[in-house]
Amino acid sequence: MALAIFDLDETLIGGDCASLWSEQMARLGWVDKESFMRKNDELMAAYSAGELAMEDYMAFSLEPMAGRTPEEVDHLVEPWVEDFIEPIIFSDACTAIANHRAAGDRILVISASGTHLVKAIAARIGIDEVLGIELEVKHGVYSGATTGVLTYREGKVTRLMEWLEAEGETLDGASFYSDSRNDLHLLKRVDHPHVVNPDPVLREHAEKAGWPIHRWS
């Protein structure tokens, strides 16, 4: 079977789940909203420009979760997904997923967000298999650090190659959907690259390469 791979933020959903979770942590009283969101927005601007060191963003965004158990966080993520993420899931994305599933393709989400968010959001869309940034757990609680290769830029390719080997899969006939210039490394590796609501750099590359460009809503 062929793979149908989807980025998450601004591809399957009309927003960035990490930033939306930062807002939720402010509502929970875990952070000061004004100062935390100001720093969040500065880092996300660097991401949009292709200049972000993901290690810096993860260290910042995970600090409020340090010392909390995965169970505590999961208990709070689930209703947050229902209230704030489900309304911004692109209907066109659901259609594309359904079409790939009908064709017998294997569906995978690969995201530069933490798996504590990616797994819950993908499950809401009906996707079980995900690759995201793994959070370190020590003594039963989140340490505030990450573990393993980050699924960001070249790291998405690295983690996907490891997953393919472990699963006995290949990229033959694979499709990948993304909105971001940061995913050019992976888009260039698949047989069927698709760009969704692309940023200007990705749009220019897609137009020159003749890749399909989708406007999802």
Rank of each mutant, 00 (worst) to 15 (best):
Met1Ile: 06
Met1Ala: 08
Ala2Ser: 11
Ala2His: 10
Leu3Val: 00
Ala4Met: 04
Phe6Ala: 00
Phe6Lys: 02
Asp7Met: 04
Leu12Thr: 01
Ile13Phe: 07
Ile13Gly: 03
Gly15Val: 01
Ser19Cys: 07
Glu23Tyr: 13
Ala26Thr: 01
Ala26Lys: 06
Arg27Asp: 10
Val31Gly: 06
Val31Thr: 04
Asp32Ser: 09
Asp41Arg: 14
Asp41Trp: 14
Leu43Ser: 08
Met44Gln: 04
Ala45Phe: 15
Ala45Pro: 00
Ser48Asp: 06
Ala49Phe: 15
Glu51Leu: 15
Ala53Ser: 02
Met54Asn: 02
Glu55Cys: 04
Tyr57Asp: 09
Phe60Ile: 02
Leu62Pro: 02
Glu63Val: 05
Gly67Asp: 11
Arg68Ser: 09
His75Ser: 02
Leu76Asn: 14
Glu78Tyr: 12
Glu82Gln: 12
Asp83Phe: 06
Glu86Ile: 06
Ala93Thr: 02
Ala93Phe: 11
Thr95Glu: 12
Thr95Asp: 04
Ala102Leu: 03
Gly104Glu: 01
Gly104Tyr: 10
Asp105Lys: 03
Arg106Gly: 09
Leu117Trp: 02
Val118Ala: 05
Ala120Tyr: 01
Ile121Tyr: 05
Ala122Ser: 13
Ala123Pro: 00
Ile125Trp: 13
Val130Asn: 07
Gly132Lys: 04
Glu136Leu: 08
Glu136His: 06
His139Leu: 11
His139Val: 06
Gly140Glu: 01
Gly148Thr: 10
Gly148Ser: 10
Glu154Arg: 12
Val157Pro: 11
Arg159Trp: 15
Glu162Asn: 15
Leu164Met: 08
Glu165Lys: 15
Ala166His: 13
Glu167Met: 08
Thr170Gly: 13
Leu171Ser: 09
Leu171Lys: 12
Leu171Gln: 12
Asp172Gly: 08
Asp172Asn: 10
Ser175Val: 07
Ser180Gln: 08
Arg181Glu: 10
Leu184Gly: 08
His185Asp: 15
Leu186Met: 00
Val190Ala: 09
His192Lys: 11
Pro193Tyr: 09
Pro193Arg: 12
Val195Leu: 11
Val196Asp: 04
Asn197Gly: 09
His205Cys: 12
Trp211Glu: 11
His214Cys: 05
His214Asn: 02
Arg215Tyr: 05
